[in-house]
């Protein structure tokens, strides 16, 4: 599934007063991910009920090893994004 499929789904599912054009549907899908990205880039977490939470985590620097050469290197401090699926999503995958 790609963004194009999501655009198609929004276009097909919105009915009556909520009908949108293909163009608007594409804009809406784009806005969903752009807004999520801006928010996460600002370090704020995102909670989508029934789906899951996206959290930006601060990682401390640590010593790692190059598995090929065995050489020790310092892995620098960084921020990573982690996704935790909601209980609802997890159980629907195992139903």
């Amino acid at each position: 599934m790609t963004k194009a499929d999501l655009v198609e789904a929004v276009y097909a599912q919105l009915e009556g007063a909520s009908r949108v054009s293909k163009r608007e549907s594409a804009d809406l899908v784009e806005l969903v991910f752009d807004t999520l990205k801006d928010n996460l880039a600002a370090g704020d977490k995102v909670k989508i009920s029934g789906f899951g939470n996206f959290v930006v985590r601060q990682k401390k620097p640590r010593v790692g090893r190059n598995p090929q050469t065995g050489k020790e290197i310092t892995i620098s401090e960084r921020k990573v994004l982690s996704f935790k699926a909601s209980q609802v999503l997890k159980s629907s995958l195992n139903a």
């Binding site: 929004v10 909520s18 549907s25």
Partner: peptide, 9 residues
């Protein structure tokens, strides 16, 4: 409705 459709899909 659009946002819900995205996550539902």
């Amino acid at each position: 409705q659009a946002v819900n459709a995205v996550f539902d899909e």
